[in-house]
């Protein structure tokens, strides 16, 4: 896997040790500790922890709230990345036309990447305010038609919009650079064969874009599981009535507000297994991705 040239053993370990120490200390040990705690009933202040085997798992897995939160997480994962990638794809194909507005659009569409989820939340919570925000006029005509503070579906929608706003730039850039990497000769050849610009999008560009699409889906899926936290904490705090209580937020509340260390660790362990399974699944699907051009 390498063009290995040097052989010095001391210098080799000196070079890799910093990163190994860092990930051991702040990644592998915490991950292992979460699995460890999930087997105990841990008193918050220590001084007594009881080994309970898989009792915590039984408890969490039989708790309907865990499944509700999981289900909301899955719903969010199904909607937000699809929109974020789908819209980015449309925008990227449009920007790839090289018309006058393309350059300006490229410059502007990347901005949200630099805005933190929590900052977006602060702005969007105002924009979607039922009495002050952009839908306030609608509420004047049809009272109560839009209120994310009461209606769980409305609240969920605000989260999705904010997440999509935040997710577009990165996907857009990746997809656009993928499109631009398609050799002109291919496009010209297709044009000579008489396929028009619309046809070429479907027959030529999309198939050649599968590696980039795959990459964006992998990153978006893993990302949405956790990135929504900043939005939830600033926009809905999991409400109304738990309608936006995704698993990552539930874990935070259970662990940091309710001192349920064992429960939080168990849910963390389960979510970790879920994310790992998903990543593995995605890489199994990678076989269908065309890398050769």
């Amino acid at each position: 896997m390498t063009q290995g040239f040097y052989t010095g053993r001391w210098s080799y370990w000196a070079l890799v040790l910093p990163i190994l120490a860092l990930i051991a200390m702040f990644f592998y040990i915490p991950a292992a500790l979460a699995f460890f705690w999930s087997l105990f009933l841990e008193r918050p202040f220590g001084g007594g922890s009881e080994f309970v085997g898989f009792q915590n798992y039984e408890r969490v897995l039989s708790d309907p709230e865990f499944w509700n939160a999981m289900w909301r997480t899955l719903t969010f994962m199904a909607i937000a990345p699809t929109l974020a990638i789908g819209l980015s794809l449309i925008l990227a194909i449009a920007a790839d036309r090289g018309i006058r507005i393309s350059q300006a659009a490229r410059n502007i569409i990347i901005w949200p990447k630099a805005v933190a989820g929590a900052s977006i939340g602060v702005v969007f919570v105002f924009i979607f305010n039922p009495f002050l925000g952009i839908f306030a006029p609608l509420n004047e005509i049809y009272p109560g038609i839009w209120n994310p503070r009461i209606d769980g579906a409305d609240a969920f929608a605000t989260l999705v919009v904010a997440q999509v706003w935040n997710g577009i730039p990165f996907n857009f850039i990746i997809l656009l650079s993928g499109l631009q990497a398609i050799p002109d000769t291919l496009t010209k050849a297709a044009a000579m064969d008489g396929s028009g610009p619309w046809r070429r999008i479907v027959d030529l560009q999309l198939p050649l874009l599968t590696p980039q699409l795959f990459l964006t889906f992998v990153l978006e899926f893993v990302g949405t599981v956790v990135e929504a936290f900043g939005l939830i904490d600033t926009m809905t705090q999991g409400g109304p009535g738990g309608a936006t209580n995704l698993l990552i937020y539930k874990i935070y509340v259970d662990g940091f507000k309710a001192y349920d260390l064992s429960g939080a660790a168990t849910q963390t362990a389960l979510l970790m297994m879920f994310v790992i399974a998903m990543v593995i699944l995605q890489f199994r699907l990678e076989r269908f991705v065309k890398y050769e051009r």
Binding site: I150, G152, G238, P240, G241, G242
Partner: peptide
């Protein structure tokens, strides 16, 4: 809070 909020909604 969560349960009663659901009822209020």
């Amino acid at each position: 809070k969560e349960e009663t909020q659901k009822a209020f909604n």
